[in-house]
């Protein structure tokens, strides 16, 4: 009899606890309702990528010495370096260079190891296309510079948290005038 009573008491306690935890959960969700949205209205507002952002890779054709280090350090040997050996000058002559960004994982090894710094990271991340073959960038496409977020007249550039003044948590909350990472506005 006592054992049964204990079971009943335990069950009741468990039920009360469950109700309490659901109540606490509801309090958390309710509390979240009064917080400011963290939304960045993407096509109209964009966050400024940080300096070490690993975006689409930029390639400078003239600096490249066709050493193929980038191919060797690449986890999947992705860059295609097409060169021929010029007997007269005893130098490699680069014909074309391409990286397929449909396969690239943006690890940055090629940029790290490039002896002449002809590879570099950009802040471009909007690579979507309708055909995956369009992601295979040749040396001309790799040589283009992306539009900076801060230079785009269509876009309000927003600073990320680390670049905000002390005490400001949200780039929308910056006092008027201080929000000028954007050079043309």
């Amino acid at each position: 009899m006592l054992k049964f009573l204990k079971q009943v008491v335990d069950y009741t306690k468990e039920t009360a606890n469950a109700a309490k935890y659901i109540g606490q959960g509801l309090a958390v969700t309710f509390d979240h309702m009064q917080r400011r949205p963290v939304t960045v209205q993407y096509p109209y507002e964009k966050l400024i990528p940080s300096e070490r952002f690993r975006g689409r890779i930029h390639f400078e054709f003239d600096k490249c010495i066709s050493c193929e280090v980038c191919v060797r350090v690449c986890p999947i040997n992705l860059p295609v370096v097409d060169y021929e050996f010029d007997k007269a000058s005893k130098k490699k002559k680069l014909n074309s260079y391409s990286i397929d960004f449909g396969v690239c994982i943006f690890c940055g090894n090629c940029v790290e190891y490039c002896p002449t710094n002809c590879l570099s990271m950009t802040e471009e991340y909007e690579l979507a296309t309708f055909d995956r073959h369009e992601l295979n960038y040749d040396s001309v496409a790799l040589g283009r510079l992306p539009t900076k977020v801060t230079d785009d007249p269509m876009v309000t550039a927003l600073r990320t948290l680390a670049y905000l003044p002390k005490g400001v948590m949200d780039p929308h909350d910056l006092p008027a005038g201080s929000q000028r990472a954007n050079s043309n506005k």
């Binding site: 969700t29 979240h32 309702m33 917080r35 400011r36 949205p37 963290v38 939304t39």
Partner: peptide, 10 residues
Amino acid sequence: KISAAVQQRI
């Protein structure tokens, strides 16, 4: 709207 508010969206 309420779902958005709970998840700090708009």
